[in-house]
Design a protein around this nucleic acid. Structure first.
Lengths: 113, 113
DNA sequence: TCGATATTTCGAATATCGTCGAAATATCGA
DNA sequence: TCGATATTTCGACGATATTCGAAATATCGA
């Protein structure tokens, strides 16, 4: 990941509704959530939500697939990992001791064998 | 960290010059870098940079201290950790297996004993 | 104190973003 | 095919963000 892509992803998340949508989808897992349900949960008009979903999708943070009359959106975990990896890699450049606590956070959250 | 603070931090980083400044300061370590040197490195006018530094500072991502005629800016590693921790915690909610690779990234970057 | 250096603040111009209503598109069931 | 449901696209308005030049502030050395 390069700076322009990172800026695009950060910009996509730098909005209350979009960050809420992203969190919702990350929690929802691979199955995803239909656009209409997202709109109700977040409390935004369907057309406005559609704009936000497009932005998140173009940033590589979510995916979509049509399912009947609705479109299910789901988190793009690869994209999310790229962004977090970019920030983590950046944070570690030069001084590993500084981001060691980060590894602990990840450790506490997703215990490794 | 709550959504509003996360949005503020993400917004601060969602700009090419500011992200470049933040990376520079993270690499520079606790000593920090004087504002003038940052401006030269990044290639922005001093007054414009000052605006960006204020935004990053208010978001809790950098700190500053006057040193003679210049002001040295340095990364706020606690703030950075809060933001990354927030995103990581969010990513893990519900499905630990998804962000396990993230823990590996942190592991590879900052090897734990 | 005075001038030089370093940084910040102010005010205004321009560009971009976010939201909405209305209309268009896609899919299904009768 | 037709009407209903689900989502997206379009066009426009108001709000916010970014940048710049000019001026103000802070600190140092002579």
């Amino acid at each position: 990941m390069q700076i322009p892509a990172a800026v695009e992803a950060l910009s996509a998340l730098a909005h209350g509704h979009r960050l809420a949508v992203f969190r919702l989808l990350v929690r929802a897992g691979a199955d995803g959530v239909p656009a209409g349900e997202i709109a109700r949960e977040i409390g935004v008009l369907p057309n406005t939500l559609s704009t936000h979903l497009t932005i998140l999708g173009h940033a590589g943070l979510i995916r979509s697939r049509r399912e009947g009359r609705s479109v299910r959106y789901s988190a793009d975990y690869d994209g999310m990992r790229d962004l977090l990896g970019f920030l983590v890699a950046d944070c570690c450049a030069g001084q590993p001791e500084i981001c060691a606590p980060l590894a602990e956070i990840a450790q506490g959250c997703c215990p490794q064998p």
